[in-house]
Computed example of a mutant assay.
Amino acid sequence: MTVAVPRRRWPLLLAVLPLLLGLAVYGQLWRGWAAEFETTLADWFPSRRPAVSGFPYRLETTVDAPMLVHEGTVQLRFIADRLRLNRGPWRPELTVMQSEWLKLSAILPGLSPRVQAPAGTASLKLDRDDQGQMRLARLSIVLPNAVGSTGLGPTFQADRLELHGRELEPVAAPPASDPRLPQRGQVVIGAEGLRFGRRGEQGTAISMTGEAKLRAAGRLRDWAAWAAGGGSIDLVLSGRDATGELFALDASIVPLGAGLRLAGTIRTVCPLAVQAALNGTKAAPELRLRAPVQLSLQTYLPTANAPIVQGLPANLAGRPRRAQLPPCPRLA
Rank of each mutant, 00 (worst) to 15 (best):
Q75R: 12
T209P: 11
F78C: 02
V63H: 01
V16M: 14
Q294R: 15
L278F: 07
R288G: 06
L17I: 03
G88L: 09
R330A: 06
P327A: 09
A258N: 15
G229Q: 00
P66C: 01
G200S: 14
Q98F: 07
K282T: 07
T155D: 13
G203Y: 06
A276H: 06
V63C: 01
Q186D: 13
D130K: 09
V187H: 10
R288C: 06
L124C: 12
W30Q: 02
A258Y: 14
A304H: 10
L235A: 04
R180W: 06
G193R: 01
L316V: 13
R128M: 02
A34K: 05
Q75K: 10
Q186H: 14
A227H: 11
I189W: 04
S149T: 02
G239A: 11
N305S: 09
L12M: 08
E71H: 08
L161T: 01
A314M: 15
A146Q: 00
L29M: 02
C270E: 02
G280T: 03
G190P: 07
R114Q: 04
A216R: 01
E71D: 14
Q116I: 08
L256Y: 09
K282C: 06
L29S: 03
S99L: 13
L312R: 14
T204S: 14
A263L: 00
G218M: 05
A304V: 08
T243R: 05
G239C: 14
P175M: 02
D250I: 14
Q131C: 00
N315C: 13
P302V: 04
F37T: 10
E286H: 02
P144D: 07
E167L: 06
A24M: 10
T281C: 12
L23A: 15
Q310A: 11
P320S: 09
G229H: 00
R128H: 12
Q298M: 05
E169K: 13
L17V: 07
T2N: 15
R87E: 03
S123L: 03
T209H: 12
E93H: 14
A332Y: 01
L278Y: 01
A172P: 06
K103I: 01
Q202N: 07
E201I: 12
D81A: 02
Q298I: 08
T155H: 14
R8N: 12
G239Y: 13
P307F: 04
A172N: 03
L312C: 15
Q324W: 14
N145T: 13
L214W: 07
